[in-house]
């Protein structure tokens, strides 16, 4: 019985994640079309809504090409690794109070580790294809991913400094008073730039720059292994948008509802009222709205900015973002302990 329940729970997380990946692709095409005064996909289903499913079905029925010079096992293993570790990050996401798969104490570390391992898939896929475009693309992509991961993890360090826990739910719940966007606004900007680069999105999509490297590390990949890269890319976009909204916007907590509550008279003995307020103030819809807005900003950025050069990409990371982050890593612990507002880690007392 418990096995069935756990299977249902796992499917309840992963199937909506995959469906949302499909709808993010269709929304990206629609939004970009509107920004470029086109119509976009509008034939399949109502308003083109089923386009993504049709594309996925088409790609699954396409012929797979396994190049003769490639290392076949690694060639198929690379995309699989990328997909697995892009989707595993959903394990520790709290969607609402009590609605998660794993409430691990080191949830943030788990997400960092999983997103770091996904780099190996790209490296394997690009190297094993034995094509010079794939090789150069995977080199570029790996250098970019590891450099920007540094920025993400050091911003995460400061979030953990202010919340005092590596648990994702504790980070969300400690933003009941004020979301961390206010004290950490510069770092949110840095983190957002880093998360655009970490997901290989335009304007940082140097790994698949069509004009120079045909399509980067996935030049030789076709059919279902291409679907794996595609799914992994969009799943990691959604995941990193969820992470952004958890770290800086309070996750499933609604700041607006909390500020309305503080104006209301909470001393009344109305149980239904309290239940209603608690449902509205921490419901998964809040997380969904925040994440959708961030995904929209990702698409908006892609439609707005031209691609930058690779040396510019690396110098933005190492000479602009990293010094700023290091400066804040030095400043914020000093301010926190100067004002004696260190969060107390109860498990250490």
């Amino acid at each position: 019985m418990s096995n069935i329940i756990s299977i249902i729970q796992g499917l309840l997380v992963i199937v909506p994640a995959l469906i949302s990946v499909a709808f993010v692709t269709i929304s990206e095409r629609k939004v970009m079309a509107s920004m470029q005064r086109r119509v976009g996909p509008n034939a399949v289903g109502y308003y083109g809504l089923l386009q993504a499913f049709a594309d996925a079905l088409k790609l699954l029925l396409k012929e797979y090409v396994a190049p003769t010079q490639a290392n076949i096992i690694l060639f198929f293993l690379g995309p699989v690794i990328t997909l697995i570790f892009a989707l595993l990050g959903y394990l520790v996401i709290p969607y609402a109070p009590g609605t998660f798969i794993s409430d691990h104490r080191l949830g943030i570390f788990f997400m960092l580790a999983v997103s770091a391992i996904a780099t190996y898939g790209i490296l394997l896929a690009g190297w094993s294809a034995n094509s010079k475009y794939a090789f150069l693309g995977s080199l570029r992509s790996t250098a970019q991913l590891i450099s920007y991961e540094l920025i993400l993890s050091s911003v995460l360090l400061l979030v953990i400094l202010l919340t005092g826990s590596l648990n994702v739910i504790t980070i969300v719940e400690s933003q009941k008073a004020v979301s961390l966007l206010l004290p950490l606004l510069p770092l949110f900007i840095v983190f957002f730039i880093g998360s655009i680069a970490e997901t290989n999105r335009a304007p940082f999509d140097l790994a698949e720059a069509e004009s120079e490297l045909v399509s980067g590390f996935m030049t030789e990949h076709s059919a279902s292994i291409f679907v794996f890269f595609f799914l992994a890319e969009y799943a990691s976009i959604i995941l990193i948008c969820i992470l952004n909204s958890i770290l800086f916007f309070g996750g499933y907590l609604s700041i607006i509802v909390f500020s309305i509550i503080s104006l209301l008279d909470l001393s009344r003995e109305d149980t239904l009222f309290h239940v209603l307020i608690s449902i509205i103030s921490s419901s998964p819809i809040n997380l969904a709205v925040k994440t959708s807005i961030l995904v929209f900003v990702f698409i908006w950025v892609r439609a707005s900015f031209p691609r930058i050069r690779f040396d510019q990409l690396m110098s933005v990371c190492w000479l602009v973002l990293l010094p700023i982050t290091i400066a804040y890593v030095i400043l914020l612990p000093c301010v926190v302990s100067g004002l004696l507002i260190n969060p107390v880690n109860i498990s250490l007392l």
């Binding site: 602009v320 010094p323 700023i324 400066a327 000093c334 100067g338 004002l339 004696l340």
Partner: peptide
């Protein structure tokens, strides 16, 4: 600008450590 202002922000750290408790 990036390195200049990050040096300023970073050196504000020890100053804050010494200066903030009396101010508080």
């Amino acid at each position: 600008p990036a390195i200049f202002y990050s040096l300023i922000i970073g050196s504000m750290g020890p100053v804050a450590l010494v200066g903030l408790p009396p101010l508080r």
